[in-house]
Design a protein around this nucleic acid. Structure first.
Length: 489
RNA sequence: GGUCCCAUCGUCAAGCGGUUAAGACACCACCCUUUCAAGGUGGUUUCAGCGGUUCGAAUCCGCUUGGGACUACCA
């Protein structure tokens, strides 16, 4: 069997959209599944859009996601150059070949509206696209224009009254009438090819066997097919993948974009998502392994990934489910890894808490969905507000405010006596007190925890919370709570 | 507008002529518990509609409706 070669062909825009990353993932997985090659090609034919440092974003993303390419601008595999702007002459040669064969033509119309306008519209029966003004220029006219130094583009000569069919591995056979196709530009006036032309040439020249790309290219594919036919080339197999959508505030859905949340890989990382979690999640958006397992390593995915699991329908990006994946991956981090990852998120934390981070981090791990939640999780250490005293009542522990008051009053002096403010010592005081009063430990811990943190939901148990808040502040807050209770009861 | 594509719980999805229509996220309840989380158990919720074909349709066909993409000298 022929070696499988897939490609990821991003345009250097300066950021990596999550949908784009998923395409890269799929292309990578497909190649790896068949022990083939994953090729990186930079599609930078739009000079106006040049963004400095944009290719670095691409390299960085592939590196941190471990989607290692086998060939690319930095890894020659014999099919280079892998940057389209460096292949300019190649495209020109092939464009001319097409002109020669009658599948393309010079167009001198320029970019202004009038020449594309209505007057010529009746000539060719179409109300869209280019009016084909230059389609039938004589050889002499073309020569004359060329000699005069007129700027030109080369357009594809779409056949009239024909039908094109291509086969997609996901969507099956798709047939369109050529009359609905535009004489698209192949070579721009600056001599650069359009994406539409370059991708066909490159995929062929680079021996790409399987094209995996977004569904939005499905309607352009007939034009590519015509190009392959014109050259007499075998077209690579295509696998179009569904679009990732986002849910709008008004309930409608549209292509995932910034207004739906973070959509670039870098942004997601910034928020504190792990690359593995993001990859695992997006792998399952539009593709299914058809089994119950959901957590997969890259290796496992590669083993499982084939076009069979590709889904035709668009998928809505669900940040909640991403959170679940991320929570899972965070929980599985070693303590050292967790501390390492959390470093840049604890900078704004109070110094005291930073000093205790080795301990506090063990509470945070497993309790957060993403690292950016750390500050909020420990907010109570610094900030304390009068909470609703009703929170001191707890059914399960058969607690009411009266009892909470009593417990707080009785245990406070004992807490104040603690010399060495450690979780163990705090717990011991509480335990001894509970034993003496014949209370369940929970009954003692509840009011303590709530009084000191001002919250019902905390990242750990009572002893742990008192330790984090510190002796001085704990005592102060318990006192305050007692006062408030006395006033109310 | 034209062309093409799509349609199973709120979301991701399995299913590919005969199933009690999987599973996961979310949600709810209960259990466990030193709170929360995690974990365990259980539950609510889905075949867009209408016609065919068939002994039998979520599965095949048609129409309707709804959604999406494309319609650049962008990719």
């Amino acid at each position: 069997m022929k070696e499988v070669r897939t490609r990821f062909a991003p345009s250097p825009t300066g950021y990596m959209h999550i949908g784009n990353l998923r395409t890269a993932l799929y292309a990578y997985l497909y190649a790896k599944h068949f022990d083939g090659k994953f090729v990186l090609r930079i599609e930078d034919t739009d000079q106006k859009r040049f963004v400095k440092g944009a290719t670095e974003v691409i390299y960085d993303t592939l590196k941190t996601t471990k989607l290692i390419h086998d060939e690319g601008p930095d890894k020659d595999g014999g099919y280079g150059p892998y940057v389209q702007s460096e292949r300019k002459e190649i495209y020109k040669k092939y464009a001319l070949e097409l002109v020669e064969k009658g599948y393309a033509y010079y167009c001198f119309c320029g970019q202004n509206e009038e020449e594309h306008g209505e007057d010529a519209e009746q000539e060719v029966e179409q109300t869209y696209g280019y009016n084909r003004h230059c389609r039938n220029l004589s050889k002499e006219e073309v020569e004359a224009n060329l000699k005069a130094g007129k700027s030109y583009v080369i357009r594809q000569k779409i056949p009239i009254d024909e039908t094109v069919t291509f086969h997609d591995e996901v969507y099956g056979d798709i047939t369109v009438e050529t009359n609905t196709l535009d004489d698209q530009i192949l070579l721009k006036s600056d001599g650069m090819p359009t994406y539409n032309f370059a991708n066909v040439i490159d995929d062929h020249l680079m021996n790409i066997t399987h094209i995996i790309r977004g569904k939005e290219y499905i309607s352009s594919t007939p034009k590519y097919q015509l190009l392959y036919n014109a050259f007499g080339w075998e077209s690579p197999k295509t696998m179009h993948v569904s679009t990732i959508m986002g849910k709008n505030a008004d309930g409608t859905v549209s292509k995932l974009s910034k207004r739906h949340g973070s959509v670039s890989f870098a942004k997601l990382l910034e928020e504190g998502y792990l690359p593995e979690a993001v990859l695992n999640y997006i792998a399952l958006l539009g593709w299914s392994p058809k089994m119950e397992q959901e957590i997969f390593s890259l290796e496992e995915l590669a083993k499982l990934f084939t076009e069979d699991g590709l889904v035709k329908t668009n998928a809505i990006f669900d940040y909640k489910k991403l959170d679940w994946f991320n929570n899972h991956y965070i929980s599985n981090l070693s303590h050292e890894e967790f501390v390492e990852h959390s470093k840049k998120y604890i900078e704004t934390l109070p110094q005291d808490l930073k000093d205790k981070w080795d301990f506090a981090s063990t509470l945070a791990q497993g309790r957060i969905d993403k690292f950016s939640q750390i500050a909020e999780l420990f907010d109570f250490v610094e900030n304390y507000e009068d909470f609703d005293l009703m929170e001191l009542e707890n059914k399960k522990n058969k607690l009411d405010k009266q009892q909470s008051l009593e417990i707080l009053k009785e245990i406070l002096p004992q807490l104040e006596n603690i010399e060495d403010w450690t979780v163990e010592n705090i717990n011991k005081v509480a335990q001894d007190y509970a034993t003496q009063k014949e209370y369940k430990i929970g009954k003692v811990m509840w009011p303590l925890r709530v009084a000191v943190t001002g919250k019902v939901v905390t990242p750990g148990g009572g002893g742990e919370m008192l330790y984090l808040v510190g002796k001085e502040k704990s005592v102060e807050r318990i006192n305050k709570t007692i006062e408030r209770l006395l006033k109310e009861i």
